[in-house]
């Protein structure tokens, strides 16, 4: 196994608040890793620091491109996305006035080129590129069972479907690594079960490396191969699901109590 993402001593400081403090972690190619922690532990802040949305104050992040590890420091979010890191958002952020198909195609912007002249004159080169983007889109839509709603404006679709579209859109960027920020939030048990199946497929069928933030412990324990636990911005534990379930520091963080790790 090779390391796909390496996070070294990352801190994120807002004024006097250390939202993330000295976090080091690594993600191997093909892994399904979960990041858990109580509310306000800094999980989303860490995601934002890794994807360039709000850069880390200290520390370095490196991502594998081919055979080299490339630093992600000072990279803008769109550059990080182009390198092969996709993400979804805790609160759904779809392009709500566009159709499902257009949402996916917007996410492919960096994957194909349409010259200005050929697109305004509708030259054959334009038709070829549009056909290519349509082919990619159809494949993803079919795999994620979204073909029926392909031409529906996303704002008009149910919540569970919107979540799935967000994942589909992340897949459309052709990533190697995908960050899922609380994908099961607000879902009923049935939808959560479907989601668990989908996340597993991202790993097996799509060959993606997955990093998951989630509060639904049954989902995390059934899916994750390795778990990182954050509390008050600090990493307090790392290990397999069964190790984490019996870790005193983790139990303490979630339930409180007198156990001092």
């Amino acid at each position: 196994m090779t390391t796909l993402l390496k996070v070294d001593h990352v801190s994120k400081i807002f004024g006097g608040l250390k939202a993330v403090e000295d976090v080091s972690m690594h993600v191997e190619t093909g892994e399904l890793v979960a990041l858990i922690g109580p509310n306000g532990a800094g999980k989303t802040t860490l995601f934002n620091a890794l994807t360039g949305v709000s850069p880390a104050t200290e520390g370095t992040v490196a991502f594998r491109v081919g055979d080299e590890m490339v630093s992600l420091d000072k990279k803008k979010p769109y550059q990080v996305a182009k390198m092969g890191i996709a993400r979804t958002f805790q609160n759904i952020r779809l392009f709500h006035q566009l159709s499902v198909r257009e949402n996916l195609q917007a996410a492919m912007t960096h994957r194909y080129k349409e010259g200005f002249v050929s697109s305004i004159l509708r030259l054959p080169a334009f038709a070829k590129q549009e056909a290519l983007a349509n082919k990619w889109t159809d494949e993803i839509l079919a795999k994620l069972d979204l073909t029926d709603v392909a031409d529906v404006i996303t704002a008009n679709l149910p919540y569970g479907t919107q979540r799935r579209i967000e994942i589909a859109r992340a897949v459309a960027t052709d990533p190697q690594l995908i960050f899922l920020d609380e994908p099961a939030a607000g879902m009923n048990p049935e939808e959560t079960a479907d989601l668990a199946h989908l996340i597993k497929r991202l790993q097996t069928e799509f060959g993606l490396t997955v990093v998951l933030i989630e509060h639904d412990m049954s989902l995390v324990m059934s899916l994750a191969e390795r778990i990182y636990v954050l509390e008050h911005g600090k990493l307090i534990a790392e290990g397999t699901p069964s190790e984490i379930q019996h870790n005193d520091a983790v139990i303490n963080a979630y339930l409180g109590g007198g156990v001092h790790a």
Partner: peptide, 19 residues
């Protein structure tokens, strides 16, 4: 599509590789 994506949600647009 890129400019409409930015109109609808600039943060999400950046996260999918749109400058």
């Amino acid at each position: 599509r890129a400019i409409q994506a930015i109109r609808d949600d600039e943060i999400a647009a950046e996260a999918v590789g749109i400058n």
